[in-house]
Amino acid sequence: MFNPDIIKPENLVYKKTNVLTDAVMHYCPGCGHGTTHRLVAEVIEEMDIQDKAICIAPVGCSVLAYNYFNVDSLGAAHGRAPAMASAIQRMFPDRHTFTYQGDGDLAAIGTAETIHACNRGENIVIIFINNGIYGMTGGQMAPTTLIGMKTATSPYGRTVELNGYPLQITELLAELPGTYYVTRQSVHTAAAVRKTKKAIRQAFENQKNKKGTSLVEVVSNCNSGWKMTPVEANKWMVENMFAKYPIGDIKVDGEKVKK
């Protein structure tokens, strides 16, 4: 160990938040889920809302998110998290109900629940991890899978003829009057992590101020599903995923951001 003499509590600048439990996450090495979990937990800690936060975990890779968030949690049926969150937040308006969903959960099986919760302007936070694949079930094609991308159910690459187009659900949701804040971020570099945390903070602040639905998409890697190393996967993500899913705010304070 280097510089052991400075390892003292007064010199501490970064430590895992206690809003995450000590359970070892089951995610693959280098997966963006863990990073995003941590950012949500840090925001909850910084806003001092651990007692008010209610996490809705999805079906997908983050099905066990409730084991990691040290807040009261519920496990949803596949795609139904926004419906659950709608009811909970309406009956407990001072809480911070948030859903944590992947692309299969939010943009395929849960499309109706997602669109209608956003359209009603439910005062909830949606954290949306988009890695263009179904990780949990073994790397099948997702609604967000890119054209040409090989997955277990598009083994020769996704084609428009067979599978239609990648779904830009976040842009679609930004069109709905109920969404107040819609942004797309990533967690592959320290700078990106800082921005994403800011976005998540903004989402929870909006909720505190009862502004309606806030959605933070995090474009993430699925190195196992993409069959790359974590570092390669992040590079591939920047070169390919960001072209279809550009990083940045899409809607701020209820207004679409002009490009």
Partner: peptide, 9 residues
């Protein structure tokens, strides 16, 4: 910041 598993202090 980028560590997915929060193992770095």
């Amino acid at each position: 910041l980028v560590c997915p598993d929060g193992v770095i202090t």
